[in-house]
Design a protein around this nucleic acid. Structure first.
Lengths: 189, 189
DNA sequence: TCAATTATGTCAGCTATGTTGACCAATCAT
DNA sequence: ATGATTGGTCAACATAGCTGACATAATTGA
């Protein structure tokens, strides 16, 4: 057997700063970070997998009733958050290819969820915004997901939310964290 | 405009328990849960999207070099966590169709990452386990993701980890939360 | 014992969403 | 003017999900 596949693996594999954990502790010396046991890290991996799936599940269901998918949702969400954004902006956020976006975006424009206007400063740009129909859908979808977050946040309280945000933001790649820090100036990091 | 698409929406939409938030507060009465503002909930949505993508990104890269995808990773991960599990068990965890799993599983078996043995109690079952080769890959992939978690956890400390786990587990569907509570008895809820 | 159920696998075919690479038109900036 | 940027488009392909039908073997229950 490889050293990691017993479900109860228990030796911290990473040397790290010693910050007090939340569980009682057996050995001496500086605290070893009990939340860094293999088991704790695997719990994190699995929580991310299941939570992400459940978090998107309700919206996915609503979307599929409209013949849309998660990719459409992302476009609607981010255009709703920042109306007037360019196609380039959206590509940079989603990190998919122009072709992948084009397919989804054309669909949303044809179906009347999104409209384009020519950029004033740079006429090459097509600035994206939601139509009334698009806004209505965005509101329904975002409300669904916000309700789930609101329930989780209020069940766990502000201190837990703070930890949640801190850890998630530390899971990000550096570049993305910098971007998000701009969006939420005094919320990330 | 619909009521929710201004990026600075700021009225809590959910009546909830009043637990002190982390930010200073302006009005009187019981604390209104500042972490329930629309902005805070959207920050959560976006963090989940970006963090999930970054969290899987490195492993995805390693997998694609081997001609494998994220679906293969999930199978390898869960079989590694619980060797001897049946195909049914795996289907229940992944919540995909038999056909989707079959395609991926056959590939992994042909490529020598996973082996099947007939169930002793129930001879219909094919019990799944990793081969040496599968164990080696699982270890590499899990280490990659664990390293990311270990870095985030140790950067933020045990209290943040606790909040992270609490909030994520509250984002789960009830049924999944119950399952995970069994896996991690004194860690979830 | 025999029928129903279960566990698993397989086939054909569809959809959504990602990829590459090439190419074009309009516009902008130097 | 010319080269870079923004955006769109086409063809072609891969992955990973889906449905529905059907087969086989083993188990379970009346």
């Amino acid at each position: 057997m490889s050293p990691e596949n017993t479900p109860t693996g228990n030796v911290p594999r990473v040397k790290s700063a010693s910050i007090s954990g939340s569980a009682p502790q057996s050995s001496s010396g500086p605290l070893k970070g009990l939340y860094l046991r293999k088991q704790d890290l695997r719990r994190g991996i699995e929580l991310m997998f299941f939570a992400y799936r459940d978090f998107t599940g309700e919206a996915d269901q609503m979307l599929s009733n409209l013949g849309l998918g998660r990719a459409h949702h992302r476009v609607i969400y981010f255009v709703g958050r920042q109306p007037g954004m360019s196609v380039s902006d959206l590509l940079a956020i989603l990190k998919i290819t122009k072709q992948s976006l084009s397919r989804v975006l054309s669909h949303l424009i044809n179906a009347g969820y999104i409209q384009q206007t020519q950029g004033a400063r740079d006429k090459r740009q097509r600035l994206l915004s939601l139509t009334k129909k698009g806004e209505a859908l965005e509101a329904k979808l975002t409300d669904l997901q916000c309700r789930r977050f609101a329930a989780a946040y209020s069940a766990r309280g502000g201190a837990a939310v703070d930890g949640f945000v801190k850890v998630l933001s530390s899971l990000l790649d550096d570049e993305i964290r910098a971007d998000l820090r701009q969006q939420y100036p005094d919320h990330i990091d």
